[in-house]
Amino acid sequence: MNLLYLFLEFFKIGLFTFGGGYAMIPLIRETVLKYNWISETEFYDLIGVCESTPGPIAVNMATFIGASQGGFGGSLLATLGVVLPSFIVIIIVALILDKFIQNKYVKQFMKGVKPVVASLIISSGLLLIAKNLGYVNMTTFNFSSRGAILLACVIGIYFLYKLIFKKKMNTILLIIISAGLGLLVCFYIP
């Protein structure tokens, strides 16, 4: 039964997320918390893992969450769920391509979706940062100096790299450096 939900929820995520990987993060977060598939901490760890392994982030996350619920079968079902809507929609679009792309209502719909997706991504980023800094809920905030120092370091390193090398830093490199910084900061600040 759980496996069926796994498939259906990821199918829904695949069907309603426009704009790829990061746009899926808010929806996947809502879903895993609703069903208690993995904890919120694990979820954010997972984003780090999925960013630094090859392949589309959405597929990586579906595979991992699926595995946590039902082993390899779970992985397979969750991945199938997230891929299937794309597969079906694209084949339909390929068959009636011109009409779809020219359709002004489709264009208009996408125009309306874009700012919403951007807001959802930014909100989920803000929430994670707030949590890193010690936000628990409306009445509780335990300021974390570790979190603040790490955030400052990550932002500092990213922009310093950009300033010195005149190009954007590779995401995987930034994640690896952050992991090292995490070890260092947590070692010195109890």
Partner: peptide, 26 residues
């Protein structure tokens, strides 16, 4: 510990992805 660092980075990456979309908006 390593993942406390990774989480700080992921927060930054998510915001960055969102801001990139905002920049591309009308």
């Amino acid at each position: 510990w390593a993942f406390i660092g990774v989480k700080a980075c992921v927060g930054f990456l998510i915001i960055k992805a969102g801001i990139n979309l905002v920049i591309k908006m009308d």
